[in-house]
Design a protein around this nucleic acid. Sequence first.
DNA 1: GACATTTAATTGGCCGCACAAGCAATAAGC
DNA 2: GCTTATTGCTTGTGCGGCCAATTAAATGTC
Lengths: 146, 146
Amino acid sequence: MSATHDTVSHALARVARLHRIAAGQLLRRLGLHPGQELLMMHLWDHGPQPQAQLIDLLGLDASTVTRMVQRLEQAGFVRRQRSDTDRRAVLVEPTAAAQALQEQVVQAWQQLEELTLHGLDDSERAAVSRLLGRIEGNLGPAASGS
Amino acid sequence: MSATHDTVSHALARVARLHRIAAGQLLRRLGLHPGQELLMMHLWDHGPQPQAQLIDLLGLDASTVTRMVQRLEQAGFVRRQRSDTDRRAVLVEPTAAAQALQEQVVQAWQQLEELTLHGLDDSERAAVSRLLGRIEGNLGPAASGS
DNA sequence: GACATTTAATTGGCCGCACAAGCAATAAGC
DNA sequence: GCTTATTGCTTGTGCGGCCAATTAAATGTC
């Protein structure tokens, strides 16, 4: 197969894109765009919280989260509220509409998970988790030499 | 750690983003944006080819490739040429400037690969490749049941 | 030949996402 | 107190990426 570089990096990029597309198709009918569901899930899990927290937890850029939250607010899924104790912080909380969505999102996410891991047995799934974790550690914060 | 859903899907999304950021940092100084290097590599590997081919090979949306190629052309890395045999097709070919870049890109890509897989032994690396391949198959074109 | 159909590419619109720069409020140093 | 970081968020800009709709050329059908 010619390809001198059938690297993991290539594969990772391709898989991630396919995965994102799959997620998009599942989430589309719920009115969410891929990426937003991660934020919403954090909100559902940990309750109302300042954006700074979301930024940290999701590992996203602050500007990304700002705009994502703005759009989610416009879509009616979250509410924003300036904190009293710290007037620059913004608290984000899910709306009732979002609560109603939670179940469906979780379901879609399970579908996606099953689609992703279809045909892999338990030990293989464990291996995937473990290896992805290792890679995440490698690419993570303490980004190596220099 | 609370999180009820530490799914592979979550991990995959996070890892892919980290990976993309790492790629971005390595490619930035070369004047390329993450994603473009994949296109260029295909061009280097398989020579001048119509966009349709690139779209197919990369698995990207046609519109994405159109604009990516436009930007790469503006940046001076590719040339576009309407095909004589098929007047709607556009042939894309790397420029000399791009050729000069190839080596550095390949190097950056190797660095990225090493960073990504740092600390994993051969068998683990093989496992990553194999498992990603399986997942890619699952998410791929013939998207499963129903 | 005249027609509909498929294919190649493009454009418009919108989102995720990052980096860079900026603004306002808080905290730290003196 | 006043000045200087530092922190939390926002806006500007630009690319990757998708989908939907459009144009133009090539095929296919009658």
